[in-house]
């Protein structure tokens, strides 16, 4: 049981490392947010499940921690992405379309 938990914790930390690597390698802010949010969420879940296996009596608090992370992490990434868009953050050259900017232009054009 203890070994399984330790191996799960190791897998979680490797996922953290991949998210850090993604944060360095991705070319613009939106792609960085994507890798950062997803990888850290799953990493925390796997690591906490591993520690639940090692210490069964900690399960209550670790489940609450997982719920916090799963609820708040997407919201904070959403707020950062929204702030980036409305403060005019540049997107990378490879971008193929931007519906939100077109929508804003339509609204300004109508009156």
């Amino acid at each position: 049981m203890e070994m399984t938990g330790a191996v799960l914790a190791l897998i979680g930390s490797i996922i953290f490392f991949l998210s850090a690597l993604g944060l360095i390698r991705m070319p613009d802010l939106y792609n960085r947010i994507q890798t950062g949010t997803k990888a850290t969420t799953l990493g925390t879940i796997i690591l906490s499940i591993g520690l639940c296996l090692i210490h069964p009596e900690w399960t209550g608090k670790l489940v609450i921690l997982i719920l916090f992370i799963v609820l708040t992490n997407p919201i904070s990434s959403h707020v950062v992405a929204r702030g980036a868009h409305y403060s005019g953050q540049e997107m990378t050259d490879k971008t193929v379309g931007d519906a939100l900017t077109e929508e804003d232009k339509d609204k300004e054009g109508t009156p």
């Binding site: 914790a9 979680g12 930390s13 953290f16 998210s19 850090a20 944060l23 360095i24 802010l29 960085r32 947010i33 950062g36 850290t40 990493g43 925390t44 690591l47 906490s48 520690l51 670790l62 921690l65 992370i69 992490n73 904070s76 990434s77 950062v80 702030g83 980036a84 403060s87 953050q89």
Partner: peptide, 29 residues
């Protein structure tokens, strides 16, 4: 490194957020 390099403020905010969540896991460990 991304926190120190990051061209804009929001890049650094993302780095800060990610580092905070990893630090939570470090505290649990």
């Amino acid at each position: 490194i991304r926190f120190i390099l990051g061209p804009s403020v929001l890049d650094r905010v993302v780095a800060f957020d990610t580092a905070g969540i990893i630090a939570i896991s470090v505290i649990v460990l």
